[in-house]
Design a protein around this nucleic acid. Structure first.
Length: 435
RNA sequence: UCCAGCGUAGCUCAGGUGGUAGAGCAGGUGCCUGUUAAGCACCGGGUCGCAGGUUCGAGUCCUGCCGCUGGAGCCA
């Protein structure tokens, strides 16, 4: 139908390099996001998976097809790309032709307010909306830049298994799976296997889903969530803190660079993100307890921090804060005892600012066979399941450290979301797992 | 699991002290040449979560159940 040259493109290309298509005929394929009209001039807002663009229709020959283009109908639009200051992306399409590919009737999610119950039931469609589009594209970037950073630093991706014969951390509950008649569990951490990897490849990480069968029901918890877990041979607690700080810094810089469109959709305050420059604040558990007491908290030395305490601590800082040297009694067996005070361990938690809580947990690992064996006995760990783990201290043991970073909490913080459920395509929560 | 709140049109909600239901949006029909969740007029749309109870009469009061949301504990 069109005889002149048509440039087949998409809104990401137009947003980034639209100048070179200006006043030329372009074609995009996508779905009707919304439409408006004002008499003889009509507006079709099309999303193509890469972004959103407004298509202007002033040709009466196109009115009928415009009327057919209901919300979320699939369509192809051709027209001349025009620069326009009124457009959020700087360009719009002066439409010359519309092809309706599939007509949608009664799309459930209207461009008005909806409750969270309704939206979660329609998650498969909700992901098409602007805010979810922005969040999930940033999630992709975050995962991509984490890998990019670690790979550049000489790590290899070394996958931990999802099926595990026993718990990595004794305290939390596990999902039990029937494994051809044997009992197996879904992994709640890949760390122990990463320790084996670190002594084989020096710098390794795993990146995958983890599962916690805890009846948590808060804005910070998912039953299935993603975690990146780097583990490094010859690294001390200090070394691993620096790796975590630099990784977080790198990812935020890269997201600021490459996701400004998505951050603007989310109306994220960029200055708050630009402030996140290493080194972060660093305090010990003991200092954190003093801070809480100075804020009027009635806190028992030796207890773990709860959600309110974490929030109170992180609100005292405008950058993430690293809390180190927790009491041995509230931390798992594999953490190395502080040689300067055996009541504490060489661990660290990183709390994000703006009340987002713990996004990183890590430690230097116990590398001495006798001490590790002793601690496992104290905590009634079934030794026969962990012979392979103890072997790591028998054959070529080395100082080593690692940490885990929760992807959804990190994404929720970067996007300033009020719940982690929007930071993953299909959240798995207590009593809610459809679609 | 515990504590708190909510359940009324496709969606978001309003319905003082009990008297057989209402708005906005969405859908439909018109009007408007620069709209940004556009606007204006008109039209259709209901097992008031479910089951009992009190009452002449229950969306409203009582009891039980179901569902959802937020928070706590645990954690990333």
């Amino acid at each position: 139908m069109e005889t002149k040259e048509v440039i087949y493109t998409n809104t990401e290309e137009i947003r980034k390099r639209g100048k070179k298509f200006e006043n030329k005929t372009v074609s995009i394929r996508g779905w009707v996001w919304n439409k408006r009209s004002s008499g003889k001039i009509r507006f079709l807002i099309v999303r193509d998976g890469k972004g959103f663009i407004q298509c202007v229709i002033d040709n009466p020959l196109l009115y009928d097809i415009f009327d057919e283009c209901t919300q979320e109908s699939t369509c192809e639009v051709q027209g001349i790309l025009k620069e326009d200051k009124r457009s959020p992306i700087g360009f719009e399409i002066l439409t010359s032709n519309i092809k309706l590919i599939h007509k949608t009737i009664n799309y459930p999610i209207t461009p008005k307010e909806h409750g969270i119950d309704f939206l979660l039931d329609h998650r498969h469609l909700w992901i098409r909306s602007r805010k979810q589009f922005a969040i999930l594209r940033i999630r992709h970037s975050v995962k991509n830049f984490i890998r990019e950073y670690l790979n550049k630093e000489g790590f290899i991706e070394f996958d931990s298994p999802i099926f595990t014969p026993s718990a990595c951390e004794g305290t939390t509950t596990l999902f039990e799976v029937d494994y051809f008649g044997d009992k197996m569990y879904l992994s709640q951490s890949g760390q122990l296997y990463q320790e084996a990897g670190a002594l084989a490849f020096e710098k390794v990480y795993c990146f995958g889903p983890t599962f916690r069968a805890e009846k948590s029901k808060t804005r910070r918890h998912l039953i299935e969530f993603w975690m990146v877990e780097p583990e490094v041979a010859f690294a001390t607690l200090d070394d691993i803190i620096q790796i975590a700080e630099n990784m977080i810094f790198y990812v935020i810089q890269k997201v600021l660079e490459s996701n400004s469109y998505e951050l603007s959709i989310l109306e994220r305050n960029l200055d708050d993100l630009r402030k996140i420059v290493p080194p972060f604040y660093r305090i010990t558990y003991t200092e954190a307890v003093e801070l809480l007491k100075s804020k009027g908290f009635d806190f028992n030395f030796g207890d773990d921090f709860g959600a309110t305490e974490e929030t109170a601590i992180s609100e005292s800082f405008d950058k993430p804060v690293v809390i180190t040297h927790y009491p041995k009694s509230i931390k798992p067996f594999y953490m190395k005892i502080d040689p300067e005070n055996p009541n504490f361990v060489l661990n660290m938690d990183i709390l994000a600012p703006e009340g987002y809580g713990e996004i990183v947990g890590g430690s230097q690992r116990e590398d001495n066979y006798e001490i590790l064996l002793q601690r496992m006995k104290e905590e009634n760990i079934p030794l026969e399941e962990y012979n392979w783990y103890l072997d790591l201290r028998k054959y070529g043991s080395a100082v080593h450290s690692g940490f885990g970073l929760g992807i959804e909490r990190f994404v929720a913080w970067i996007c300033k979301l009020d719940h982690v459920r929007e930071a993953i395509p299909f959240p798995r929560m207590l009593y809610r797992y459809k679609p």
